[in-house]
């Protein structure tokens, strides 16, 4: 079979068109990828900036709270609002150095008085005889 003289040119044209399409696609893909990289980078940066912004706001609020809780400020509020709060200066635990039971009985105001100072009563044991 005789080969057509235009076959070479057809093939070449086809190859060129294919190369053109492939190159174009790759180019478009590269551009799209780069765009996505840019979008992602910007979005990451915006997110980081937002996180930093929120952290700064939280920090500001925290500082404000702590400033408002300063002892001198609280004392000032206590006075201006007439709250009458007093610092804890009373001992929460009373150190009892006297006889504890006697004290408890006395405070209860009833019951028999314990005579701990009296000598113990004699106890008689009946011994079995073998």
């Amino acid at each position: 079979m005789k080969k057509s003289p235009s076959a070479f040119a057809n093939q070449l044209l086809l190859c060129v068109l294919l190369a053109f399409c492939t190159g174009g696609s790759i180019g478009l893909a590269a551009v799209w990828l780069r765009h996505q990289v840019s979008v992602t980078a910007r979005s990451n940066r915006d997110l980081a900036a937002e996180v930093a912004r929120l952290e700064r706001l939280i920090d500001e609020r925290k500082t404000l709270l702590e400033t408002e809780q300063a002892p001198d400020k609280l004392r000032g509020l206590n006075a201006s609002l007439r709250l009458g709060l007093v610092p804890m200066s009373e001992l929460p635990v009373l150190q009892v150095t006297e006889n504890v039971l006697e004290r408890m009985v006395r405070r209860a105001g009833s019951g028999p008085r314990l005579e701990t100072a009296l000598p113990p009563a004699p106890v008689t044991f009946r011994l079995a005889r073998n």
Partner: peptide
């Protein structure tokens, strides 16, 4: 037919030249 094949060849060469 010869003219047609020449046109294709010219087109191919032009594309090559552009690239």
């Amino acid at each position: 037919r010869g003219f047609a094949s020449n046109r294709i060849a010219v087109l191919g060469v032009t594309l090559f030249a552009c690239f």
